[in-house]
Design a protein around this nucleic acid. Sequence first.
DNA 1: TCTGGGGTCCTAGGACCC
DNA 2: TCTGGGGTCCTAGGACCC
Length: 420
Amino acid sequence: MKPTFAIVDCNNFYASCERLFRPELKNMPLVVLSNNDGCVVARSQEVKDLGIKMAVPVFKILDKVKRHKIEVFSSNYRLYGDISARVMQTLEQFSPHVEVYSIDEAFLDLSGIAALNDYGQKIRSTVLQHVGVPVCVGIAPTKTLAKLANYAAKKFKATRGVVDLRETERQKRLLKITPVSEIWGVGRKYTLSLQRLGINTALDLAQMNTREIKRLYSVVLERTVCELNGESCIDLEKTSPKKQQIVCSRSFGEKLTHYAGVRTAVCEFAARATEKLRGQNRLALMVNVFLRTSPFDKTGPNYANNATGKLICPSSDTRIIMALVARLFDMIWQEGYRYAKAGVMLGDFCSPDQVQFDLFDRQPDQQQNDRLMQAVDSINQSGRGKIWFGGQRPQQDWFMKQANLSPAYTTRWSSIPEVK
DNA sequence: TCTGGGGTCCTAGGACCC
DNA sequence: TCTGGGGTCCTAGGACCC
């Protein structure tokens, strides 16, 4: 039997989250900014209609913000993460298999369900009622076509937010009027290259010879072509795959020039990354540190570098990983630059029960270390205070700019809204 | 003045093996 | 004159996603 996929995608997700607790902002223009209040990462419909593009630096649109009284928010990932979890939980009642694809999207297996258009409408109204976030639903025999159906559900108001794209004729009509750049898996580079070959619409791409596409591009794009033709190549991920790397990096609120400041930052990243690692119950063998100046900074020379090191045996101990991070940092640190960003990456993971201990490395009591790290994590997550290691200093000068942060409405007792 | 953060997968090429 | 073939593993870099 042919599978049926649905993708449920929240409309203007971050903007919708901010609106949930500020209902007076309904129908008002609103944007959410990236970390450091740098770029626009989410826009309400009103802002999209003003022609403000995704990812534009906010300093370029300040005049529009003023003129149209656009409400500006710093990103509040605690809030968005919590609202996202509620949406996903609501979706579970509609399918035995829900794959959370991103913070605001999920694929559902709807194979064997009849009256799919009504079913899609039911999903929309339920999520709206239970969580308050508007969503659109795209339904099709492949994931790529489902994404396309979702695009149409968002774009064309007459669809009332649900498009069932199981019929081949309907697929063709939609493919014909969709620019190839809108297809899932076709990014900026591929779009340019395809256009040079005269492939402008999604239908042009769907009609290409798959072998030719594989030769010219990759097996990934070949799969996309098959999927556009109704042949399902990308399955639903029924269990969330284990992470293969963990990155913690930030742009600095202001440029840093001193050794101590940047070193503190990378030690902080090491602590955060290791915390995430323990959250996944994994150990890391590979550690990478990188730093760079801003490519936009014309006031001085640019510099970017990174260094990779391997631990003798896999670990999730903040003290061990932070020590290596500090050593790697010293290898790439150069005096005399205005640093804009740095980060720590962990990789080469294994489970705690697969560890091969080094014959010559004197293992201190492993259980004791684990208990120490558990204690650190539980204190830091309790909200009652923080403890940290030597290299770190909490909330230093490099810390993010967040001038317009909304309250933690759903995750902090003191910030829960009151009804009077 | 001011430009995000965190991921995945694939490929090409070099080192190395027999 | 004629100078193998096939495989693995690793890394860097490039494409994509949200």
